[in-house]
Computed example of a mutant assay.
Amino acid sequence: MTTYSADPNLDLVLERTVDVAPELVWKAWTTPELIVQWFTPKPWSTTSCELDLRPGGKFNTVMRSPEGQEFPNVGCVLLVEENSTLVFTSALGAGFRPQVTEDGFPFTAVVHIEPAGTGTKYTATAIHADASAKKAHAEMGFIEGWGAALDQLVEVAKRL
């Protein structure tokens, strides 16, 4: 099992315990048909998801604003440890191909899940290249947005 120690100067961390089994949290994170149901905090939506669940595989989503504007997000899966850890990045495209991001900043996400009683301890860490990227992501509402998306994930997982 891979663990990551967050750097408080560069990383943002959302950690919560949720009342669904780790296997269901994993399924919600790794099934494109489920990802589109919860991944983007409402009133935004995720209109599509392509996920090749292997290192070097693509993790692409398209998010839609309430006004209908679409925002493609192209990324690469770095690590897959079933029912435990998913790591992906926007700094690379499929096949570990470096890419230039037009707006925003690249970051790497580490999603770690582990059993906690009858539920799941969920830790999502956003890793940034520098303090200014961390600050920009925090100001965009990382904790609130990823927290709202986690609530939506739990709703979806409870229906499985």
Score class of each variant (00 low, 15 high):
K134E: 12
E102A: 15
G56V: 03
L160V: 08
R54T: 09
H112F: 07
V100K: 14
T46G: 00
G95M: 04
R159C: 07
T123L: 06
E81Y: 06
A136R: 11
L10P: 01
P22C: 04
M63G: 08
F71G: 03
N83V: 12
A94Q: 13
L34P: 11
L160M: 15
P106H: 05
P32I: 08
G141V: 07
G145H: 02
T46E: 00
V13R: 02
F39V: 06
T120F: 13
A6R: 00
V111F: 04
F96N: 09
Q37A: 06
D130W: 10
V80W: 07
L14R: 01
F142A: 09
G147C: 11
E33H: 05
A21P: 07
P43L: 02
V156S: 06
G56F: 01
H137P: 03
T30F: 00
I35G: 00
I113T: 08
M63H: 11
T31Y: 03
T120A: 13
A138I: 02
T40K: 00
G75N: 00
E102K: 14
G104N: 11
H128C: 05
G104H: 10
A126M: 10
A94E: 14
E67I: 01
T61A: 10
E33M: 07
L150P: 05
E139S: 10
S48M: 12
A148F: 04
P115A: 15
P66K: 02
A6N: 03
T2Y: 13
K27I: 05
H128N: 10
S84L: 09
S90A: 12
S45N: 04
V100P: 01
A124R: 02
T17I: 15
E114G: 14
A129Y: 10
A136K: 13
R97K: 15
V156Y: 08
K135D: 14
S84D: 13
G147I: 09
V154C: 08
R159I: 06
L78N: 02
K158L: 08
D7M: 01
E155H: 09
Q69S: 09
E102R: 14
K121W: 10
N83T: 12
V80C: 08
A149C: 07
E33T: 11
T61H: 05
T89C: 06
W38V: 01
K27T: 14
V111D: 08
W26E: 03
L92P: 07
L12W: 06
W29R: 00
A109D: 05
R54P: 00
A157F: 02
E144A: 14
C76R: 05
R159V: 08
P55Y: 08
A129T: 10
L34M: 10
L12T: 06
F142L: 08
W29T: 00
T101H: 09
S48T: 12
E81W: 06
P72Q: 04
P22I: 06
T17P: 13
S132M: 13
G147K: 07
T3Y: 11
S45Y: 01
F39W: 14
T40Y: 04
P41M: 04
I113W: 09
G68K: 04
D151L: 10
V25G: 02
G104Y: 10
A149I: 08
W146K: 01
P106Q: 05
G68C: 05
T17E: 15
T46L: 00
Y4K: 00
E114M: 12
